[in-house]
Structures are given as C-alpha cells and as structure tokens.
Computed example of a mutant assay.
Amino acid sequence: MKKKLSLAVCMLLVFALVLTGCSGAASPAASPDSSSAPAASATASAGDVDWPTKPITLLVGYSAGGSSDLGARFLATALEKQLGQPVIVENKPGSGSWVAWNQLLYNTPKDGYTFALTNLSVLFGAYDEKNPRKETMDDFELMANQAIDYQVIAIRSDETRFTDFASLVEYSKNNDLLVAAASTGITSGEGSVAKMMEKEFGSKITLVPVEGAKDAETMFVSKNTDILFNNVGDTTNSHKKGDYKVIVVFGKERSTMLPDVPTAIETGLCDYVSFSARGYGYAKGVAPSIVEKMTAALAKAIEDPECVKNMNDMGVEIKLYTGDEYKELLRNQLDTRLEIWGIPKK
C-alpha cells in the first residue's frame, strides 16, 4: 500500500514539473535591449520597477558655474529627495551640448542611470547651417521641461530715440540698428528676433557677432550697440536696478520675473513668441517603466519649493511640462522659427 502511495505521489510531482516547464517555454524571450533587471521590463508598472538602486548621472553640456549648470544642480538636489539616490552632475561642454548628447546617445547604457539637460537644440540641430546634425528629437526620450526663458528687447535708461517697442519699430524702419548676438540663424533666439523684425516690419538690423550673452550686454551698456536682444533670465536684475529698461517680452503672457513689461502680443504689433527651454531627457531605449518613474520624480523635483526659489533668484521662470506636452512645446517653437526663416520642415 505504501509503495502504491509513493508511486502516486511521484507521478503527481512529475506532472507538476512538466506543466511548469511548458509554462516557461511559452514565455517570450527577452530582447537584447532589455538586459536590465526583469522589473524594468516594458510591462512593469512604475511602482513595481526596482530602480534606482545606485547613483544617477546628469550630463550637462555647459561649463560649471553658468545658469544652465546651476539650474541642473538645483534640480539634482531636489531629485535626490524623490529617488533616494545621489544625482551626480557631470559637465560635458562643447558643440552646443552635442558633446554631452553624443555621450548620452552612443556611449551610455540605456538602463535609466544617465540622463541629460536638454534644450531646443535637440530639434534645431538638423537645421544648423554650419554643422547640421543627423540626430532628431526622436532619438531622445524627452521627459520634463523645467524652465522657459523668453526673449526680450532692452534699451538704455537714457535712450531718447525710442522709448517702447512701438517707437523702436518705427525708428528701425528708416534707421540702421546694431545688435550684438552670440549666434545667428534659426538656432539663435536673438538672431530669430532680428529676422522676425526684418520680415514683419522691414527693420534694418545688423548683428554683430560676439562670444556670449555677457559680451553682448557689455557692448550694449558701453554704447557700442544700439539695443539689446537677450532673455528674461539675463536681464531681470539689471532691469530692476535701472541699469537699462526691458521694453518687450516675446512670450504668450507676461513674465512673472518682469510683470511690468508688456508682451509683443499686448502691443498689438505682432504675435511672435520666442524662448529658450531647459528640460531633461534620456536616450531612446530606456524601459518605459523607468521613464514613467523618472518623469514623475522630475515633475516633483522641478516644483520643489527650494528648487523653485533658487531658480527664481536667478531670474529663471519655472514652467513644468511633461511627456507629450513637453514635446509639443518644443515642436511649436521649431515651427515658429522655421516660418520666420522660410525653411522647409524636414
């Protein structure tokens, strides 16, 4: 009797093992791109994924100490609170951030442990006349926008030829104006404002090339140029101190940093909107579950009160966009500039 019972038990065990083996054989094989932990698979929810379990690197395509670098460091500190892991900022300056982005796209595992500061050049690279890029926005997994910095025009406090945007436009139709700019073409916010004024009003504007925004401001203050094309972040403090006067902001609404300055839309002269945007993204190929979790963490970090205060103290306005809304924000600005420059969309 005991022998029969033992035989029956053994048969049941063998049957169970066969069923288990068949079940395993029916599971799809992991793809080469999903070599990370099983919890990071595309089917895992953001709450299930076992990530992060080690420090995370944030690539910044600018030198340490600038406003873009500082903004990234403020974000990194806030992000550590959300993820419970150190976020290490690594500066990789050069080629308008493409040194950092090339490392992200081609020399970094797609495991969610390296992301980068992104901006409009992710889209504009393909339209750069001097150094066109094969990469497009589709090569990035854009997650969250942290800040928008609208372009502005400023005049000197003692300027008498024009006092506001309307009188500047009228003056520029019949008089040449010198403006310093760090870059030109579609990739340049300042250059695009000049192109818009030329196209919309027939303005006579000559751009003087300089190394950076600070050099442009120095030439303007020393009266070597007539007006200043810049952005809200770089002009807020000087405007408030009375060093010079910002007369128009090229935003959809007034900047909270410069609430006394009208938008171009308010003046009724044009509806042009131009800005630089700072956000964060992965290279395409990171598991969706990790992207989802990182996007949620970024959104909370961007709106962290201490991070917001630090950004505002620099004159930078926080504008959170995530996912598809972030991508749409960038696409709209690309379309605006393509129209201004008369360039067909690729």
Rank of each mutant, 00 (worst) to 15 (best):
176 D>G: 11
15 F>A: 15
153 I>P: 03
25 A>H: 02
244 Y>P: 00
250 F>H: 06
270 C>P: 00
78 A>D: 02
137 M>A: 13
282 Y>R: 01
302 I>N: 01
155 I>G: 00
82 Q>L: 06
84 G>Q: 04
249 V>P: 01
289 S>V: 12
33 D>P: 00
298 L>T: 01
239 H>E: 05
318 I>D: 02
296 A>Y: 06
174 N>S: 15
5 L>W: 02
275 F>E: 03
38 P>I: 12
325 E>S: 14
310 N>Y: 04
96 G>N: 15
224 N>H: 12
117 L>D: 08
21 G>D: 00
108 T>A: 09
148 I>A: 06
198 E>H: 10
213 A>Q: 07
230 N>R: 13
103 Q>V: 08
227 I>S: 03
230 N>L: 12
127 Y>V: 09
207 L>C: 08
140 F>I: 05
280 Y>D: 01
221 V>K: 13
98 W>E: 13
146 Q>F: 07
61 G>A: 05
262 P>T: 05
198 E>P: 00
319 K>V: 13
283 A>G: 11
110 K>L: 14
84 G>V: 03
262 P>H: 07
166 A>F: 04
179 V>R: 01
35 S>R: 05
322 T>S: 10
307 C>Y: 03
118 T>L: 13
69 D>C: 10
152 V>C: 05
273 V>C: 06
4 K>F: 11
235 T>L: 10
338 L>W: 07
78 A>E: 02
336 T>M: 06
178 L>C: 03
162 F>V: 05
283 A>D: 03
224 N>E: 14
332 N>A: 13
88 I>G: 00
231 N>P: 03
32 P>E: 11
48 D>A: 14
163 T>R: 03
309 K>M: 10
61 G>V: 12
108 T>E: 08
207 L>T: 06
83 L>A: 12
232 V>C: 08
324 D>I: 12
164 D>G: 01
25 A>N: 02
304 D>T: 10
188 S>E: 08
45 S>D: 12
278 R>N: 11
279 G>V: 03
73 R>E: 15
25 A>T: 00
26 A>M: 10
172 S>H: 02
207 L>A: 07
178 L>M: 09
28 P>M: 02
314 M>H: 06
320 L>T: 13
322 T>I: 10
44 A>R: 05
158 D>I: 01
124 F>P: 00
81 K>S: 14
